[in-house]
Write a protein that binds this DNA or RNA. Structure first.
Lengths: 158, 158
DNA sequence: TTTAGATAGTTGCAAGTGAGACTATCTCGC
DNA sequence: GCGAGATAGTCTCACTTGCAACTATCTAAA
């Protein structure tokens, strides 16, 4: 008879670990800065790329639904953490960019998050971390998840 | 200036991968058997353990909120996939167990899910899979996710 | 025995999110 | 230029889920 041990089943483990790690980090951006996950993803994307980009681009990069990104953008604009300008070339879309306040928040938040990441991975040696990242990359690749570290054009985004 | 590349940030990658893998598997239990994730977790826990167990136990094992498990249990009982009996020793709790129908579904579903898991991991060699599982285990351990109630086999200890 | 606190499970409520409709705009073929 | 189809972003609706209150029951200590 076929059996399946949930604790050895990789899909379950990844789902559980993903949720757990998110919860562990959310205290940094939620409790301290009032950001939820979609808002943090917008900030993270805009902060990493220096140039302004569209909501659609952020949605594709982060695999987040466009309506969710839309709400996050509205909220961040209300708090003046990001701003947007019409794109003269294509008036359907807006170019999003961080404000000075948004950038300040970003620079304060990033070191905290990187420290948390280090804590989570502190149980692995440098070699193991490298290996873990490599294996994660192979699986992401196999599932067709975007994993470019370089900024990509909209054309490549999908 | 501190920067953070979302695509290299392990918490983001784990969260995204966990969601993606869940979505890839959900077609098996949702579209074919009408189970959602909490229901599947109840079935998986009861199917793996031979003895009946409580809703609370399932909630703890799977790190799912007890109200979510409660709703899943109600739904599964309505479909006669599981049944429950009062525990004479402690009348607050119920002992949950699979029905014949539930067991039949379980045995039909498990091979499909294991096949999906293999597909997801097909990009890794046998050695790499073992290593990935080992590293996952270390991180789970570091976050306190290891379940003491289900002792790990020697195989997982490596 | 009584009572205070803990625990199992259920339920009402509110927040978050995805699907998909909708508007406005762009692109391409004619 | 014109119309069909594609695309960016917003909005409504329905669904899911976590939280917290609630009931019922158990445990332990006075």
């Amino acid at each position: 008879m076929a059996k399946l041990d949930l604790f050895k089943f990789v899909p379950f483990r990844l789902n559980r670990l993903g949720a757990e790690v998110s919860a562990a980090l959310s205290s940094e951006y939620r409790e301290r800065y009032g950001l939820d996950i979609p808002e943090w993803r917008v900030i993270a994307t805009l902060g990493f790329r220096n140039e302004a980009c569209s909501a659609q681009y952020i949605a594709q990069c982060t695999r987040t639904h466009k309506s969710t990104i839309s709400r996050a953008v509205t909220s961040l604009m209300e708090r003046q953490l990001i701003e947007r300008v019409e794109n003269a070339d294509d008036r359907r879309e807006f170019r999003l960019a961080m404000t000075r306040r948004g950038t300040a928040l970003y620079e304060e938040l990033i070191p905290r998050l990187l420290r948390r990441e280090q804590e989570i991975l502190s149980c692995l040696s440098a070699q193991e971390r490298k290996e873990f990242a490599r294996l994660l990359g192979k699986i992401e690749d196999n599932l067709g998840l975007v994993q470019a570290s370089q900024p990509m054009s909209e054309a490549e985004a999908y």
